[in-house]
Design a protein around this nucleic acid. Structure first.
Lengths: 143, 143
DNA sequence: TTCACTGCAAATGATTTGCAAAGCA
DNA sequence: TGCTTTGCAAATCATTTGCAGTGAA
């Protein structure tokens, strides 16, 4: 059962970003944010709702992922041109992409890799400002 | 008219990668490689064939882009989850993405940014080897 | 002649949308 | 009650595929 008490933490979190805490949004928020960082697609998240016995349509999963992204609760990751991944980690960080399995993992932020963000501003074309730097380190199984 | 002489340079280039130099492939190769580096989508390249009066179907444009990519003449760039971009520059380099217009541009390779390639090997997870590092610097118009 | 290649139209897969019914404030 | 949100099915968009006809060697 989803906790619908008017003052529960999950309800407050949704209200804080201007989203009405409906049963579907609460259930999806729980799947997404209850555990550590996750990388999901609409389809993968929908599958988990079905396993968990949550009644929600695929269209609502799509809509909710976009609403959460607009609200800053999720970040969209461009890695595969055929599907959209959403990342529950909205901090500044980058990704490993496992070509064999299609899986995504965060690159630990302490790595030198992220120093790129400090370098980037120096190379911007005139009249442009930095929106974001995305780094994807593509990996394959070592032979 | 497309030059179909058995020994023309364009014909040789296609033969060299194992592709039969058909009228469609030669015409597309000319659009792609006659000028400097380009970033195209199947649709944008198809539009140019229509403007140029080249008879070719959209399906063939898709197939040819993939054949050229497999042959190493093009590189696929993952930037926008809704469409595939192909880059005529197959050298090791990275991209600016102009969020306002959807355009892509190469980041001049002399920039420090590319030093990332030297750093990357040090952070690989066990059992994995580097396939490629993709960096996208997303830009918006400065306000 | 032969097999690769092309074009068309239908199929696919991910995502979006229209609209009536259901739910939250 | 009144305005959101949801669910379903249909629509869309990019891309792929089946297959009969065309073309290069």
């Amino acid at each position: 059962m989803v906790d619908m008490r008017p003052n529960s933490k999950a309800v407050d979190n949704l209200r804080a970003v201007g989203l009405r805490p409906t049963r579907q949004r609460l259930a999806l928020a729980r799947l997404l944010f209850a555990q550590g960082n996750q990388h999901v697609t609409a389809e993968s998240l929908y599958d988990r709702t079905q396993v968990a016995g949550i009644k929600v349509s695929l269209a609502t999963v799509y809509n909710t992922l976009h609403q959460f992204t607009d609200a800053g609760l999720l970040r969209q990751v461009m890695i595969d041109s055929s599907r959209s991944y959403f990342d529950t980690n909205v901090e500044d960080h980058h990704h490993f992409y496992f070509e064999d399995t299609g899986e995504i993992a965060d690159i630990p932020s302490e790595h030198t890799l992220t120093q790129i963000n400090a370098v980037a501003p120096a190379i911007l074309p005139a009249g442009m400002e930095l929106s974001r730097v995305d780094i994807v380190v593509r990996l394959r199984r070592a032979e």
